[in-house]
């Protein structure tokens, strides 16, 4: 039991985050300004809006070695571009169904809304995702598959 726990904590997942520039990126900035400590496993890719996020980015991230992915933008009705996040929401509602089909455990993908004033929420999203993916273990199966095909 103890060794299993140790090997779990020894695994440091690689998480790619696709976030919008105006809400979540700024929220993550605020987390930094507020010196909120969080797991160092997340690498942010900045986009103007969640509406810009092509679902293929998520697949690609897994193919290229990510163990988990975060997609986060402005709260509904709070989009800098008025409606980009609504398009993202619809797109990812459909995309979620596809993940399973592609052999990706949906628990490896976090969708969330983090506003520019929610530094604390960003930390929680990061830590929860890292913890969840840590428990799921490395996504070797998918990486191997991708490697074989690529």
């Amino acid at each position: 039991m103890a060794t299993a726990a140790e090997s779990l904590t020894a695994f440091e997942p690689r998480i790619t985050a696709f976030v919008c520039n105006w809400c979540t990126y700024t929220g993550a900035d605020l987390a930094g300004t507020s010196r909120l400590q969080m797991a160092p496993n997340v690498r942010i890719v900045r986009l103007p809006c969640t509406g810009r996020i092509d679902p293929l980015f998520v697949i690609k991230a897994f193919e290229r070695g990510a163990d988990g992915v975060i997609v986060s933008g402005c709260h509904p009705a709070d989009c800098h571009y008025t409606a980009g996040n609504y398009h993202a929401r619809r797109r990812f509602a459909v995309f979620r169904e596809l993940l399973d089909f592609m052999g990706i455990d949906t628990r490896r993908v976090t969708f969330s809304w983090v506003s520019a004033s929610e530094g604390g929420k960003w930390r929680d999203v990061v830590n929860e995702t890292v913890g969840r993916v840590q428990a799921l273990g490395p996504f070797e199966a998918y990486h191997e598959l991708a490697g074989r095909q690529g």
Binding site: P48, C49, G51, R52, I53, H80, Y81, H87, A88, R91
Partner: peptide, 19 residues
Amino acid sequence: GCGTCQATCPSKSVELDGF
């Protein structure tokens, strides 16, 4: 410059400069 068009375009013929 939100880029929603680019993520939506089936033929990938829209490009958002900078992203």
